[in-house]
Amino acid sequence: MDKLTTVDGRAYPFGMKNVDTDIVIPAHWLKTISRNGLGKGAFEVLRKEPGNVFDDPEYAGSPILIAGDNFGCGSSREHAAWALGDLGIKVVIAPSFSDIFSGNAFKNGILTVVLPQDAVDRLLEVAKTDPIHVDLESQSVTTQFQDRFAFEIDPFRKHCLLGGLDEIGLTLDQSDVIDGYEARQAQDRPWIVPAAVA
């Protein structure tokens, strides 16, 4: 996973509340075999509306998404995080997130930033014309207009995102412990390895 330290750039001034994962990525996209390419299906229904922020050239390729309350509610599909990642989004800022979505986002290297509604409203305003700066190390969101909003994050998640460590990477860091288990098992229960089939 890529390291995430600072993210600088334009943000989609989305702001919609209660965006469920069906809105992020509709069910018919679940038959895909890749987690890439789902960006095409991201917000598919909303993008049929003229003037939507996702197809506005002003915001094309923005690494930040600013949303409303309870972002990512509904189905647990991990495809929602994959779709946002594929769209190039690295940070989602909202007043609140569903637990499952923020867990899935984290597993896929996307930072979810919880800020009070008034801060989110201010950032939605700035985002229309100017870039936003997110600094994970100092846990702050700033603008060139002296705005500075601090946010909280679980220290373990922060550590993982800063180091580009995903859960698999972290477990792999403990390979020696797993090696040790396998060595003990090979001694105690050697028959555990399936018989080879010709």
């Binding site: 895909t32 890749s34 987690r35 994959w82 995903d166 698999i168 990477g169 403990q174 412990v177 797993i178």
Partner: peptide
């Protein structure tokens, strides 16, 4: 951290997992 002795894989829930391995 629990050791897994046996892993069965079918075509619906594995493509993105293999892809994840490939990308990393």
């Amino acid at each position: 951290l629990i050791y897994i002795d046996r892993h069965l894989v079918h075509e619906v829930t594995s493509p993105q997992a293999f892809e994840g391995l490939r990308l990393a």
